[in-house]
């Protein structure tokens, strides 16, 4: 186990010093990266450009560039999207924010507490619990979707918020990451000192340890957020009521009706664009945290 945090920027500075490379290999490297930048960004660029076009313009105008009235069309599309079926799309966005936001927040706290206890306390069956959690990492959430549906239908809770929200709280990978990070970044001496000062274990965790574990917590939060935001099978199998859909399931439903209702195409495209913006912003804004948290998980 090695030390977890190397801020990417400073580490990069150290790494980029080296002997002069030939112009050829520099050019080759830049060429490879340049071509793949096009590969990764063109689809997103197309989505942005296309969401600024009215229905017929999509096929008639240059596909990868804007039209003269792109800005006004974009806002017109946006307003139509938000008004369609009494603001169903806004409801979906709010649902996704609730499932993913609240789910990831609670899930992170729960996983952090468990991982922290596994790292910092000796207790009976500790290794058994950790191994069970680890095998949980290998059992993918999608394999559980149908069994979860069967269980929830036994207690008549399918087609409710809870059916999607509650199973999303469990993140075995979060526990794994929290344990590794807590073991490496929370010194025992500090906990001893807190105990001598008479602080309770819980209080020490929430006031001292969580601060030291912050990069790991942000990482767990972000990855669980993405996992819930992207989750498709569970809502697909659990939910019938459109008003409960997360945005991915809603767009999927609209997309599969395009052949009957052609105007949905515009809504699907701009809706897809609107739904990925929050995630991209979250990742860019928080990247300082998750990139150092990531190295903790992979270095092990």
């Amino acid at each position: 186990m090695s030390t977890p945090t190397v801020p990417l920027s400073t580490a990069e500075k150290i790494h980029s010093r080296g002997p002069r490379e030939s112009v050829m290999s520099r050019a080759a490297a830049m060429l490879i990266m340049g071509v793949f930048t096009l590969y990764f960004l063109t689809p997103i660029w197309w989505l942005l450009v296309t969401s600024t076009k009215a229905g017929g313009e999509i096929t008639r105008t240059a596909p990868l560039w804007f039209t003269p009235n792109s800005i006004s069309t974009f806002f017109a599309n946006l307003i139509e999207l938000f008004q369609y079926q009494d603001g169903l799309f806004i409801k979906w966005l709010a649902n996704s924010a609730l499932y993913a936001g609240a789910g990831a927040l609670l899930g992170t706290i729960i996983a952090a507490m468990c991982g922290y206890a596994l790292a910092k306390y000796e207790f009976k069956r500790r290794e058994i619990i950790f191994n069970v959690v680890l095998s949980g990492v290998l059992v993918p959430a999608t394999a559980l979707a149908l069994p979860l549906f069967l269980i929830f239908s036994e207690v008549n809770l399918t087609n409710t918020y809870w059916a999607v929200f509650l199973p999303s709280l469990v993140s075995p990978f979060g526990v794994y990451l929290a344990r590794i990070y807590a073991a490496a970044s929370v010194p025992d001496e500090l906990l001893e000192a807190a105990r001598l000062d008479g602080a309770g274990e819980l209080r020490t965790f929430f006031t001292v340890s969580t601060r030291l574990m912050a990069p790991a917590l942000v990482t767990i939060f972000l990855f669980q957020f993405v996992a819930i935001w992207n989750n498709f099978f569970l809502p697909l199998i659990m939910l019938r009521d459109q008003a409960l859909f997360p945005v991915t399931l809603g767009l999927y439903a609209w997309n599969s009706q395009i052949s009957q209702i052609p105007e949905l195409r515009t809504y699907v495209i701009i809706g897809a664009f609107v739904s990925i913006v929050p995630l991209i912003i979250a990742f860019l804004g928080l990247q300082r945290f998750w990139s150092s948290g990531l190295s903790a998980g992979s270095v092990k």
């Binding site: 793949f36 930048t37 990764f40 960004l41 689809p43 997103i44 197309w46 989505l47 993405v226 935001w229 992207n230 498709f232 991915t248 399931l249 767009l251 999927y252 997309n255 699907v268 897809a272 739904s275 990925i276 995630l279 991209i280 979250a282 990742f283």
Partner: peptide, 16 residues
């Protein structure tokens, strides 16, 4: 730039 697609859910990526 290379990481950005990770923010796109599978359903949305497939639609796109």
């Amino acid at each position: 730039a290379f990481f950005a697609p990770y923010a796109v859910p599978g359903v949305i990526a497939a639609i796109m």
